[in-house]
Simulated scan of single mutants.
Amino acid sequence: MSLPTELIHHPYRPPADFEAVAPGVHKASTVIFPSVAAMRERDWKDKSAYTYGLHGTPTTFTLEERIATLEGGRHCVLAPSGLSAIALVDMALLRAGDELLIPDNAYGPGKAFAEGELAAWGIRHRFYDPMDPADLAAQLTASTRLVWLEVPGSVTLEYPDLPALVEVVRQANERFGYGQGHQRIVTALDNTWGAGIAFCAFEAGVDISMQALTKYPSGGADVLMGSVVTRDESLHRRLLLTHMRLGLGVGANDAELVLRGLPSLALRYHAQDATARALAAWMQRQPKVARVFHPALPGSPGHEHWKRHARAAACLFSVVFQPDIPAERVDAFCDRLQRFRLGYSWAGPISLCVPYDIPSMRTTPWPHAPRLVRFAVGLEAQEDLQADLAQALQVLD
């Protein structure tokens, strides 16, 4: 055998009993079969064997099982980003003529996907007020097939009564005479904020829990990934088949990064939660601040729902300044921050802030000053972040 061939087809195989703290990283497009019979017998859908890298490796299967456990579910599929996970749910469950309901304060790119691609495919969508279960009930029709939920609302952090919203959908399914088949209305929760730590989505009755693993499970601000978890076998099969047809694979090195972040997830979540609560309360006392949005803060929209249903509150809070402060001064405040850096996403080690123009993001009236600043607390010391906020507030004098 020539040297080039021997290097490729080398007979050595390492011992099989190696075990370490970090799971192994298996990279593959091609998977080798021992025989034609094995090639024909293997089924990629049940994780009993390997067929092709896109359908899973030991690394991605390990991550899927751990995310399912984190969420309190049974089945998980991975996607290249949180947005692609949202799109996967939409495309797996909706067909032309169906209707989708979305919270008006939901994640913007998910709304844009409905307004663009889904609308072009003949799938209707409407936005409902998540703080009013009666509004959701009024908008459900016999054509509705999917209701998105988000706890709390993206950017403005209103905390809805999640069990009440799920109950509205359950009653609608009963009213329309839907059973457990494809016709029933499915509830899907964007649980990125809760991350499996603040509450269990399935205990609240949702059918599907989606996360942007980019955020808390990764924790390093260096990877993009999403997940879709369910307890329902039939829903999982629908998701899995669409996942396969779309080719939504994730890289082994990205899966490795998320697996590395999972052991510290709870510690990071609670540490950032504690700092965010302290800073939100401090900001609420500042004279230039008109309103602070944080679910654990008394007076924040939905605070009572949070008290009943959640155990923690993540790293986010948002601030609306006094109405006499012009938008350009708010931007100057953001520019003056030194520890809070300007950047999207959250749950990483570095604190971030982003100014938003809320009226441009909503279909319903926004009763506060239009410019809102969302803060994402990192892992820096609370006193350093508070000092940074204090020095930046001076620009508003």
Rank of each mutant, 00 (worst) to 15 (best):
L3T: 12
T5H: 10
I8N: 01
P11M: 03
P15Y: 06
F18P: 01
V21I: 07
H26C: 13
K27Q: 11
P34S: 14
S35V: 13
S35F: 11
A38D: 15
D43R: 07
K47A: 12
Y50D: 06
Y50M: 14
T62N: 13
L70S: 10
V89F: 06
M91P: 03
L94S: 10
G97F: 02
G97S: 03
L101G: 04
P103Y: 08
G108H: 11
K111P: 02
A114Y: 04
A114V: 05
G116R: 10
G116F: 03
A120H: 14
R124T: 15
H125E: 05
R126Y: 03
Y128I: 08
M131N: 08
A134H: 13
T141H: 09
A142G: 07
W148Y: 15
E150S: 02
L157S: 03
E158C: 10
Y159T: 09
P163V: 10
V166Q: 12
V169L: 07
A172M: 07
A172I: 07
E174I: 02
E174S: 10
G177L: 04
G177K: 03
G177F: 05
Q183D: 14
A188E: 02
D190W: 03
G196D: 11
I197N: 01
A204D: 13
D207I: 01
I208M: 13
M210K: 14
Q211T: 14
Q211W: 07
A212E: 07
Y216M: 12
P217A: 04
P217Q: 04
S218A: 15
A221E: 15
M225H: 00
M225I: 05
T230L: 09
D232S: 14
R238V: 04
R238S: 11
R245G: 08
L246S: 05
N253C: 04
E256C: 13
V258I: 14
L265W: 04
Y269K: 11
H270W: 11
Q272R: 10
Q272C: 06
A274G: 08
A276C: 08
A280S: 06
A280Q: 00
A280R: 00
M283E: 02
M283K: 05
M283D: 10
K288P: 02
H294M: 11
S300R: 00
P301A: 09
A312K: 06
A314T: 15
C315G: 02
V320E: 08
Q322R: 15
I325A: 00
E328R: 00
R329S: 15
Q338L: 06
R339P: 00
Y344C: 12
A347W: 00
A347E: 12
I350S: 09
L352C: 01
P355N: 04
M361G: 02
M361D: 06
R362H: 09
T363C: 11
T363R: 09
P365S: 13
P365R: 12
W366N: 00
R374I: 01
A376L: 04
L379E: 12
Q382Y: 05
E383P: 01
E383Y: 03
D384Q: 13
L385M: 15
Q386R: 10
D388M: 01
V395Q: 01
